[in-house]
């Protein structure tokens, strides 16, 4: 520390504080960034291994019009974090389909090891609920990884 009356005394008297004027701007920028980029998870992840496909395409539909139907390898179906018995799927989807103004797009999120009979039961139920616009959630696969398989 500088001695009193020493050559550095003046300096510490003038500038002892951190400039805080721009802090607000930085904070606002961060705030805006997080506000814009945050999308809340509506449901918890089920840790399934999705099948891979080359022809995977991005689905252009508003997030609120997409309903996730999770199918676990043992045939359990989850919609909006609730376990739905297989024969009740149509009853659960139908009101949601009506609320969405008939624009509901179903994302079938099945584990790749799920026996196909469970997937078939779900699509039959969806047909019953008139929700015929579906897509099978897949991960994009590059040609290289396929050739290695």
């Amino acid at each position: 520390m500088a001695k009193k009356g020493g050559p550095f005394e003046r300096k510490s008297k003038v500038e002892a504080e951190i400039p805080a004027a721009s802090m607000a701007d930085i904070a606002f920028l961060l705030l805006i960034f997080f506000m814009v980029s945050t999308t809340f998870r509506r449901e918890q992840d089920r840790h399934l291994t999705f099948p891979r496909a080359d022809a995977t395409q991005k689905q252009d539909e508003k997030r609120k019009n997409i309903l996730h139907v999770w199918i676990e390898p043992d045939g359990q179906v989850y919609i909006n974090d609730r376990l739905v018995p297989m024969d009740m799927v149509a009853d659960v989807v139908l009101p949601l389909y009506r609320d969405s103004d008939r624009r509901l797009l179903i994302s079938i999120r099945g584990d790749r090891d799920t026996p196909y009979r469970f997937i078939n039961s779900v699509t039959e139920q969806l047909r019953e609920a008139n929700a015929v616009r579906v897509f099978f959630h897949t991960d994009l696969e590059s040609r290289l990884t396929r050739e290695r398989r």
């Binding site: 022809a55 991005k58 047909r127 008139n130 579906v134 099978f136 959630h137 991960d139």
Partner: peptide, 19 residues
């Protein structure tokens, strides 16, 4: 803004026959 990757909805779409 440029590096954030959003979880996007992707897959193979198909239209089921109506009941």
């Amino acid at each position: 803004l440029t590096t954030t990757v959003f979880e996007e909805e992707k897959g193979l779409s198909i239209v089921l026959p109506e009941a």
